[in-house]
C-alpha cells in the first residue's frame, strides 16, 4: 500500500486515540495494544469499524494475544461480550430513514424497513454480526424501494398535471 500518510484513529475503552500511520497501527496490533474488536477509523470511512474487519489489516496482529494481559486464548475472533458499547453503532440500523420513508413517502414498504431496522441492534447485542449486517442491508433496500416508489409516483403525477395544463391551454 502506497498511502502511508493515511491517518488512522483508534478507540480503546471508549476513548478516541490517534492519529497514527498505518504502520504504527499495525505495530500496535502486533504488540497486542490494538485487538480485533477495537474500533478504528480514517477519513473516508462511513463509520468506525472493528480492526479485525478492515481489509488493510487482515491477518496482521490479530493472532497473537496481548502479552501484558493475563487472559488466555487467542483474540482473533472477538467474543460478543468483548465488543465495546460503541460497537452497536457499527452496523447502521436505518431506523430513522425507515420512519421518515413510512410517514412521509406514504409507502407501506417503509414498515417492512422498520421491522428489519428494529432487528439490527438486537442482533449486534447477541453477537450475530452477520445477521445484523443482513438485517441492515434489508432495511436499506426497503427504504430505497419506498423512496423510489414515492419518487416514481411524484414523477408520474407531475407528468399528468403537466399534460392537464397543456391540454387546458390547447382547448
Amino acid at each position: 500500500m502506497i498511502c502511508t500518510h493515511m491517518s488512522w484513529y483508534y478507540s480503546k475503552n471508549g476513548t478516541q486515540l490517534g492519529p497514527v500511520t498505518e504502520e504504527e497501527l499495525k505495530a500496535k496490533a502486533s504488540s497486542g495494544e490494538v485487538i480485533a474488536a477495537d474500533l478504528i477509523w480514517r477519513e473516508g470511512m462511513s463509520d468506525w469499524k472493528p480492526y479485525g474487519q478492515v481489509a488493510e489489516f487482515q491477518g496482521i496482529g490479530m493472532v497473537s494475544p496481548p502479552p501484558a494481559s493475563g487472559t488466555m486464548g487467542s483474540v482473533s475472533i472477538p467474543q460478543p461480550s468483548a465488543y465495546p458499547a460503541a460497537y452497536a453503532q457499527q452496523v447502521p440500523n436505518y431506523l430513522w430513514q425507515s420512519i421518515v420513508a413510512t410517514v412521509l413517502c406514504c409507502m407501506p414498504f417503509g414498515v417492512v424497513a422498520i421491522v428489519f431496522a428494529a432487528k439490527v441492534d438486537g442482533l449486534v447485542a447477541r453477537g450475530d454480526i452477520a445477521g445484523a449486517n443482513a438485517a441492515s442491508k434489508s432495511a436499506k433496500t426497503w427504504v430505497t424501494v419506498a423512496v423510489g416508489c414515492w419518487l416514481a409516483v411524484v414523477a408520474i403525477y407531475a407528468v399528468v398535471v403537466l399534460i392537464a395544463i397543456i391540454g387546458g391551454a390547447v382547448n
Binding site: W41, D47, I114, V115, D121, G122
Partner: peptide
C-alpha cells in the same frame, strides 16, 4: 465525513417498540 460522537438511538428495545407501535 466523520460521525458525530453522539447519536439519537432508541436502542434495541426502543426500536422494537417503535416497530410494534407502527
Amino acid at each position: 465525513g466523520k460521525p458525530l460522537p453522539f447519536r439519537l438511538n432508541p436502542g434495541r428495545w426502543g426500536a422494537t417498540v417503535i416497530a410494534v407501535v407502527m
